[in-house]
Design a protein around this nucleic acid. Structure first.
Length: 207
DNA sequence: CTCCAGGGGGCCA
DNA sequence: TGGCCCCATGGA
């Protein structure tokens, strides 16, 4: 049982909601290790705050998040996203929206695509939303899923099968951990325990 | 040296 | 819609 093996992976531990949003944008196509360096720079300046980022210049911000890569475009998008969310009344306001309404709002922002929107819904607003990332798609395809399956189909499949925000968070964290350890893009790894995901998935999905 | 990371957007057919 | 290209640092 994967959950017993990996335990509670505690995704985005102890961070404020603002920090989760900033991290979610910085980690786009970027290793978390590089993101942490940027978060440290922002933290020691008291800038892990969307209302402060909203008032920061692109020049200053891009210098602080340099380690995350794509720093110019990310600085620009981060400021724009923080301004929009702050202007809309912050996460307190988003909390009052339905999940679909919140998602629609997020997707309209430049810098928030499907996965980042899902991360915000799941990890900031605690909605029952599954985050479909690169590892998830790679793992499901390697398990034999038809490789033309769209990401939103994968998402609804999981959401229909796994109920509850905590379970969805943990399943996502488990997939990422497995993907990092055993599911590199190019080589097929031997001794890969991916098949145990099937057992896990069937356990959770069985009525 | 090469490969790739917890994507997203613009452009084009 | 679907594919391609760009963004860029840092670790393995």
């Amino acid at each position: 049982m994967l959950e017993a093996y990996y335990g509670d992976l505690n995704w985005w531990p102890g961070g404020s909601r603002d920090e989760i949003l900033i991290g979610a944008i910085l980690t786009q196509n970027t290793s978390w290790n590089n993101v942490e360096k940027s978060l440290s720079e922002l933290r020691k300046r008291g800038m892990l705050d969307i209302r402060i980022i909203a008032r920061t210049s692109e020049r200053i911000l891009s210098g602080l998040i340099r380690s995350s890569g794509f720093y110019r475009i990310k600085a620009s998008r981060l400021i724009s996203v923080c301004r929009s969310i702050a202007a809309a009344g912050g996460f307190e306001s988003l909390e009052k929206k339905t999940t679909s309404e919140a998602e629609e709002f997020l997707l309209a922002l430049n810098g928030i695509g499907e996965e980042t929107a899902e991360s915000v819904l799941c990890y900031i607003l605690d909605r029952d939303v599954f985050v479909v990332d690169r590892y998830t798609v790679r793992i499901f395809f390697r398990l034999g899923m038809d490789n033309t399956t769209r990401r939103d189909e994968i998402r609804s499949l999981v959401e229909m099968s796994i109920k509850g925000n905590d379970s969805l968070k943990n399943f996502h964290a488990t997939l990422v951990q497995l993907g990092k350890e055993h599911c590199r893009p190019t080589p097929y790894c031997s001794g890969c325990p991916l098949s145990s995901i099937c057992e896990y998935f069937q356990r959770v999905t069985s009525p």
